[in-house]
Design a protein around this nucleic acid. Sequence first.
DNA 1: CTGAAAGCGCTAACAG
DNA 2: CTGTTAGCGCTTTCAG
Lengths: 337, 337
Amino acid sequence: MENVTIRMLAERLQLSTATISKALSNSHEISEETKQRVLALAAELNYVPNPYASSLRKKSSHTIAVVIPEVADSFFAEAINGIESVAQAKGYHVLIYLTHESFLKEQAILKDFQSGRVDGVLISVTTETSAAPHGLAQLVKEVPVVFFDRICEEVTAARITTDDANAAYNATSHLIAGGCRHIGLLSASRQLSISNHRAKGFQQALTAHQLPLTAASVLYCSNDPVATQELLQTALQQEHYDGLVATTEKLATAVYLACEALSLNIPGDVQVIGFSNLSTARFLHPSLTTVSQPAFDMGKAAATLLFKALKSSSFPLDEQQQVIPSSMIIRNSTKAH
Amino acid sequence: MENVTIRMLAERLQLSTATISKALSNSHEISEETKQRVLALAAELNYVPNPYASSLRKKSSHTIAVVIPEVADSFFAEAINGIESVAQAKGYHVLIYLTHESFLKEQAILKDFQSGRVDGVLISVTTETSAAPHGLAQLVKEVPVVFFDRICEEVTAARITTDDANAAYNATSHLIAGGCRHIGLLSASRQLSISNHRAKGFQQALTAHQLPLTAASVLYCSNDPVATQELLQTALQQEHYDGLVATTEKLATAVYLACEALSLNIPGDVQVIGFSNLSTARFLHPSLTTVSQPAFDMGKAAATLLFKALKSSSFPLDEQQQVIPSSMIIRNSTKAH
DNA sequence: CTGAAAGCGCTAACAG
DNA sequence: CTGTTAGCGCTTTCAG
C-alpha cells in the first residue's frame, strides 16, 4: 500500500487537489459538506500529510531546535520537559542537539539552522562559547532565538535567566553565616556570563563580609571529570577550604567524591552548597544545601517566548528578558539556618 | 539577503542546477575543476541546502525519532546520550518525543511517523502500552523501528533489552541473603513486558528460597508520585516488609521518602535495592544498592542497529535482538555482601 | 464555493 | 563531463 497523497483523495472524490488541501486545513471557502466528505475519506484511507512538502512550500517546518550541552543533567532534563510541554501543546516538533560543551560542535549545529530546518531555536551555550561568537550573531538575524540559562551577553537576543549573581551572593553569605572563613568557588567556565555572574556575587559577598579574595578563591574546573577530581583534591588538601560553592550540579557531586576520597567530613571540615536540581539532593549524605533553579519554568518561559515570536513577526523578541528567581534550600551540608 | 539556492549558484557560474547539485554531492561525473568552483562559490555565499526540498525529493529525511516516557530520568537521559552519539557521527538529526507514560500521546506521535517525517524510530513504550497496540504493529511495517528497554513483545521488531528477569532474581536473592524474609516488589506496570520479567525473576527467587508469594508481594504503583507515596506508606505500615525491590528509579527514591516519613531505617528495618542509573546512588543516605542498566550502551546499540537497517534495506532488522547485561552494585542499603 | 496552474528547492533519469 | 526535463506533495494566488 502506497502512501496516501492529497491527489489520491482528489481523484477519488472527483475534486481538485486545491479543494482537498483547503478542506483539510478547514478553510472557510469550502462547504461543510465537502469538508465532511474529504475528512471522511482521509480518515478511511489513513491519510497523513507529508510534512516536508508542506514545509518546502510554506517555508516553515513546525519544528524547533533545542541546543544544550548535555541531557544527563537534571537542570537540562527538566528544562526540556518545560520546553516540550509547550511545544507539544502547540503541535510543534522538537529537535535536540547536544554540544557536549564543544564550541565547534555548537558552530556546526547552528550553521545548519540557516537552512530553514527549524522555525526557532532555544539554546544554552557551551562553556567554551566565547564572547564574540560569529555564528550566533549571524543566526539571530535569520531565525528567532531564545537563550536560556547560559546566555551570550554580546548577542542581542531574548534571554531567560536566573538571578545568578544574587543566588551566588546568598549562597556565599549562607556559608559565612555558618562560620566559613576560607571559601572556594568552583566554576565551570571563564567566559560564560552565567559563571561570571556567579563569581561576581561570590566576590561581593566576600568583600561585604571583609573576607579576602585570593588567587585560590575561584577554582576553574574543566569538563573532564577525572581532571576535575584531581584539581579538587589537591586544592582541598593545599587550601583547607572550610566552605565550597559548587556552581554546577556535576561539580557538587564531584565535591562529595573528593571529600570521600580525602576523608573530609561535610559539613564538619567543609561546608558545601551547590547549584543543582538533583531530585536526590535531600537524600544525599549529608543532604545537600542547594541553589535550585526553576528549570522547568525556564524551559517553559523560553518556549513560550519563542512561540509568541513565531505567531506574530512584529513581536520584539530581541528585547525580551526574563529573570526567574532561584531558591536556596538549606539542608545538612551547611551549618547555618 | 535572501536565502541562497542551488539555482543562484547555477546562474552565477553559468551552469545548470543539475551540475551544481552533483558537484555539491561530490559526484564522480563532475570535473574536479567545476567542483572547486562550485564549492568555492557555495562557501563564499554561505550556501546551506534546504533539507526539506531534499527530503521531499529523496523521500528520506536524515532524521530519526526517539520516543520515550520521560527525560528527567537517568536511564533515559543516558540512553539519549548513547543514541545521539551515533546519530551525530552519522550526520542524522534527532527528534525527541515525550509520552509522559500516556498511551494516547504515544499513539498520536506514532501516527505522525507514517508521514515519512523520520527515517527510523527508537522507542521505549509507556507503562500503559498494552499487549496489542495496533499503532505499533502498523508502524513497524512502514518504517524501521527499534525497541529499547521497554519493548512490546507482541510486535515483531528489533529489540535491545537488559537481562531483566535475571537481574530481578539476583536482586531478590541478594535481599534474601541479607536476611530478608518478607520482600515486596515495587512495579510500575501490569502490562509492560519488562515489568513482568522483573516480577517473574522476583517470584522465582522467592520460590527458589522457599519463601511464599502473597498478594502483598507485588505492589503496582501508578505514575503519580503522590498516590505512589500514599500506597507505599500504607503498605510499609501494614506489611512490615523487611526488603524491597524497586523496579524503577523513581520508585527507589520514593522508598527513601516513605521510609523517612515513617522513620524506618534503611537497611535496619527495610533493605532496599533499586533498578537505577542515578549517578548519586553512592552518595545517598544510605548509599543505594542498585541494579544498574547499561543505559548509554543500550541507546548506542539501538541506534547502531537502526542505522544498519537504514544503510541496507536487506538487513533483517525484525530479527535483531540484543540483551545487554546489567550489573548489581552492592552498597549500604542492603546487608549482604 | 471550486479549480487551474505555478512553484517551493532539490535530485535523478536521460540525453547529448 | 554538462544540461534538459520532470516531478517529489503540498499550498496559494487567481479565475471562474
